[in-house]
Computed example of a mutant assay.
Amino acid sequence: MLKIAVIGLGWWGSTIIKCLQESNIVEIYAAVDIDEKRGNFICSKYNLRYYKNIEDALGDIDVDAVIIATAHGLHEEMFISSLEANKHIFCEKPFALSSKAAKRMITGAESKGIIIGIGHERRYEGALEELKRVVDSGKLGTLLHLEFNASYNMMVNAPPTGWRKDPREAPAGMMTALGVHQTDFMQTLAGPVKSLNSQLIKRSDDFPNEDVLTIQFNFKSGISGSLTSLATTPFYQRMTVFGDRGWIENREISNVDMPDPARLMWCAIDNEIHTRTFKMTNTVRANIESWASAVMGNGSYRFSNEEILHNVEILEAIVSSISSGQEVKIS
Rank of each mutant, 00 (worst) to 15 (best):
M258D: 11
F90N: 07
V32W: 07
A96F: 02
Y124R: 00
E125K: 11
N218S: 13
M154H: 13
E84D: 13
N255T: 09
N250Q: 11
G191C: 13
I116R: 04
F235K: 04
N287W: 00
I80V: 11
E92K: 00
L309G: 02
Q326D: 14
V156D: 12
E249D: 06
F95N: 09
T107G: 15
K52M: 14
K220F: 03
T281I: 07
Y124V: 00
I288P: 06
S229Y: 01
M265Q: 13
A292G: 07
G138I: 03
T183E: 07
N149C: 05
E316F: 03
R133V: 02
L74R: 15
K45R: 13
V312C: 05
E272L: 14
V312K: 04
K52N: 12
D62G: 02
L74E: 15
L2D: 00
F41H: 14
F207D: 10
R203E: 15
Q182H: 09
G8I: 05
A96N: 13
F185H: 11
S224F: 04
E36K: 12
Y50E: 07
S226P: 01
S254V: 05
I106Y: 14
S324K: 01
Y46R: 09
G179P: 05
A85L: 07
I115P: 00
H145Q: 11
